[in-house]
C-alpha cells in the first residue's frame, strides 16, 4: 500500500479507534486505577526521605517525581504484545491481514486514539502534583523544556509500542511470547526509573542502563517533566532515545515481516 492510501485511511482508522476508546471508557478507568506501582513506591520513598533528603531528593521531590511517573505511564503505555498474542492464538489476525493496510497501523491507531482519554486522566494528576509540590517541581518551566518533554513522551511511547510489536511478533515463531513480555516488563520496572529515580543506582549500573532502552521509555520523560536536566544533557538524552526508536522500529518491522509469513490462522 502506498503512502497516499495510508494517509487517506488513517483519519478513519483513528476515528474508529477513538470511538472504541470512548465506548470502553469504564474499562480504561479501571486500568488507570490499577497503575498503583508509582504510588506504592512513592509512599516508600517518602518514608525514607522523612528524616533527611536522599541525594537531591526531598519528600516533595519524590511526590513530584512519582506523580509525573504516573502521568507519563498513562501517556506512554502500549499493550499491542498481548493483543497480538491473543489474535495469533485465536486466528483472528487473519481478519486484519485481509485489509489492504498493515495490521501494525491498526495496532498503532488503537493506541494513539486512546491518547485524548488518557490525557483526561493524566491532567488532574499533574494539577494535583502542582498543588502539592509547586510548579517548579511538577512541570517544565521553559518553552524548550516543554518542547523536549513532548518529544520525549512521544519517543517513550514509540519505544514501548515498537517493543510490544517486536515481542508480539515473536509469538508467530514461538506460539506464545507472553512470558517473554513478562520478562521485558520486569526489566522495564527495574531499569526504567519507574520504581526509583535511576540516579540512585551505582555508577557502573547506570552506564549500562544508559545504553538500554528502558530508561528512555519512562525515566527520561519524567526527568524532563521535573526539570532534572539542562539543555545540552537533555538534547543528548533525547537523541539517544530517538536512536532507540529507530533501532526498535527496524527490529519490530523486520520480525513482523518474517513472522507473518509463518502465520497459519489456527482456529480462525
Amino acid at each position: 500500500m502506498n503512502a497516499r492510501g495510508l494517509l487517506r485511511a488513517l483519519p478513519t482508522m483513528l476515528r474508529v479507534s477513538f470511538a472504541e476508546s470512548v465506548a470502553y471508557r469504564a474499562e480504561m478507568f479501571v486500568w488507570v486505577l490499577s497503575t498503583t506501582m508509582p504510588l506504592v513506591n512513592m509512599v516508600l520513598w517518602m518514608a525514607v526521605a522523612k528524616s533527611a533528603p536522599v541525594g537531591n531528593f526531598g519528600q516533595a521531590d519524590f511526590v513530584g517525581y512519582f506523580l509525573a511517573t504516573f502521568a507519563v505511564r498513562q501517556l506512554t503505555s502500549a499493550w499491542a504484545a498481548w493483543l497480538i498474542n491473543w489474535e495469533v492464538k485465536q486466528g483472528t489476525l487473519a481478519m486484519r491481514l485481509l485489509r489492504p493496510i498493515s495490521p501494525l497501523w491498526g495496532y498503532a491507531s488503537d493506541n494513539v486514539a486512546g491518547f485524548p482519554m488518557r490525557v483526561v486522566v493524566a491532567l488532574p494528576v499533574v494539577l494535583l502534583s502542582i498543588a502539592l509540590v509547586g510548579a517548579d517541581k511538577a512541570v517544565p518551566q521553559h518553552a524548550w523544556q516543554w518542547g523536549l518533554f513532548l518529544v520525549a513522551v512521544l519517543g517513550g511511547w514509540a519505544i514501548t509500542f515498537l517493543a510490544n510489536v517486536a515481542i508480539g511478533a515473536l509469538s508467530l515463531f514461538l506460539d506464545s511470547s507472553q512470558k517473554m513480555m513478562e520478562v521485558w516488563m520486569v526489566l522495564f520496572f527495574v531499569c526504567s526509573g519507574y520504581m526509583y529515580p535511576v540516579e540512585f543506582l551505582p555508577e557502573g549500573l547506570r552506564t549500562v542502563i544508559d545504553w538500554l532502552p528502558f530508561r528512555y521509555q519512562m525515566g527520561l520523560p519524567v526527568e524532563l517533566m521535573t526539570n532534572a536536566h539542562d539543555l545540552p544533557t537533555a538534547l543528548g538524552l533525547v537523541a539517544r532515545q530517538w536512536a532507540w526508536v529507530l533501532g526498535m522500529g527496524a527490529l519490530a518491522v523486520g520480525l513482523w515481516k518474517q513472522g507473518v509469513k509463518r502465520f497459519a490462522a489456527f482456529g480462525g
Binding site: V30, S34, K50
Partner: peptide, 23 residues
C-alpha cells in the same frame, strides 16, 4: 480487569505497613 485491579492494590502490601504512617 477488576481482578487485575485487585492484584495491583495488593502491591501495597509489599512494604512494612509503618511506611504509610507519614502519608
Amino acid at each position: 480487569n477488576l481482578t487485575y485491579l485487585f492484584t495491583s492494590i495488593f502491591d501495597f502490601a509489599r512494604w512494612p505497613s509503618s511506611v504509610f504512617k507519614g502519608v
